[in-house]
Amino acid sequence: MTKGACRRDFMLTVEECAEIKEELIHSPTPRAACVDALKVVQRHRGWIDDEALGDVAELLGMSSAELDGVATFYNLIFRQPVGEHVILVCDSISCWLVGSESVLSALERRLGIKAGETTADGKFTLLLTVCLGHCDIAPVMMLDGEIIGNLTQEKIDDALKRALSSPVDAENVGEDE
């Protein structure tokens, strides 16, 4: 990763700015690219702090307040710090019917945290989410962007182990180009 700031008064890196500008080329208006721009930052930093949000807003010609209104509206943009790996557990109806509550308690036990929290070592954040669109393989969770279904205790343990042994796959978490 290019480490330097892309502007003297910016915290965003050269690389982040370049990726955001790339999004802008394909966008009919700067604002239409704002979610993609936020995703660029999130891919690099895990979440979006006030300073990064301010930089993105300036690049897009929006006010910070306007951009924050968008960022906080959408469930998958994080305005709070998250761990290295993010687990989203579906708690909607089809998963609930087939045992999402035991999936959640298994994860809470393994990680030693409650939903909404991050482990002390900063490795995992555990969040609840609405239907992931994979109700045919319920119960379902998403780990670092990967859908994992038909969850059992073994599958959960496997997934956690795999996450720990492999760096986050930016390819999967973020955009695909």
């Binding site: 469930n75 989410t129 955009e175």
Partner: peptide, 20 residues
């Protein structure tokens, strides 16, 4: 790609979402 919100599937909510 959306960023996750049920309302983004509502016809005019979707239009707003596409506009950022």
């Amino acid at each position: 790609a959306s960023a996750g919100r049920y309302m983004a599937g509502e016809e005019t909510g979707l239009i707003n979402a596409l506009e950022g």
